[in-house]
Write a protein that binds this DNA or RNA. Structure first.
Lengths: 160, 160
DNA sequence: CAAAATACGTTATATTGTAACAATTATGAA
DNA sequence: TTCATAATTGTTACAATATAACGTATTTTG
């Protein structure tokens, strides 16, 4: 998996994500329509979360007939349902999922400075969460972990 | 600490929280004004997170002159700054902090059915998160962990 | 093909949160 | 105390995010 902090040909990230989405949807019999694919592509335009209304504006720039909010939110709902994107509730924004084929809990490192959000996976986190919930008799259905701070690129560079 | 899932005299929770808030603010030289204290009390009215506009409505019921949104948000900002409440971003709602005197990362178990949110603390969670972030070179400034599911009371009771 | 399900368009509105400035109240130094 | 300053609250207006409801078009399936 490419490291979002390093320079890279981001077109590859986008293409890979779209390719995997097509394949996954085909397997599941889910309909990745042109609109939904376009929204997924827009979400993947960078490694920073993007807001629904920014997607809406991008769509507006591309099509003549400008879309309305429900159009975007419905596409986002579809993409979330199928694990292709995540919603970062602390930012009211959306970001592409870096490993949509595996069942996983979403856990993000969000840089306050450059706004890159990296999805991480660590068995020990899952384990300790599950442990802790279990000791309380709590059954986890969904988990949202959002860690805000400074990414390796920005932690060194002194804030201007 | 009282267990939010068990029946208890909730007036005690409220009184304890207010008492601790007064004491903490006094120590820090922070001004817990009547308005702020009232908002804190409303947040503590139950163990379920409450929305800003619900607080606003409650204030409206109590006072003749009805408050405006900025009044409530400013009070909430003050209470968050001093660690007296937390914001649950997945719900756009606020809940009283159960141990405001200790520096800690917020971690909540949120029941989908009864809406009780329990704040938990587990060294192993903090440790594994820190570990994982560190291995990426990421410096955590703030963390938000929100686990949604079924609390011990509701996990048994079959959903109607 | 026809019927049903799914997806999308469109209008209107709900919900959550903030900017900006005025009025008031508390604080602290002279 | 008294005035100057800072902090808090009031007030108006609006920004940003999200959804309800219903109509139309497209796709799927028998």
């Amino acid at each position: 998996m490419t490291n979002p902090y390093h320079p890279h040909n981001h077109r590859h990230c986008i293409e890979d994500a779209l390719q995997e989405a097509r394949s996954l949807c085909k397997d599941k019999g889910a309909r990745l329509t042109p609109l939904r694919e376009k929204v997924l592509e827009l979400v993947w335009q960078s490694h920073s979360p993007i807001g629904a209304y920014d997607i809406l504006a991008e769509l507006g720039r591309l099509e003549e007939r400008s879309a309305q909010p429900p159009t975007v939110y419905r596409a986002l709902d579809f993409l979330m349902e199928h694990g292709l994107i995540h919603r970062l509730s602390s930012l009211n924004a959306f970001i592409g999922c870096s490993h949509p084929s595996e069942q996983h809990n979403s856990c993000f490192l969000i840089c306050e400075k450059c706004h890159v959000a990296q999805e991480i996976e660590h068995p020990s986190i899952d384990a300790s969460l599950k442990d802790c919930a279990q000791s309380q008799g709590f059954k986890i259905i969904d988990s949202s972990i959002e860690l805000t701070g400074l990414c390796p690129n920005c932690v060194g560079a002194n804030q201007e």
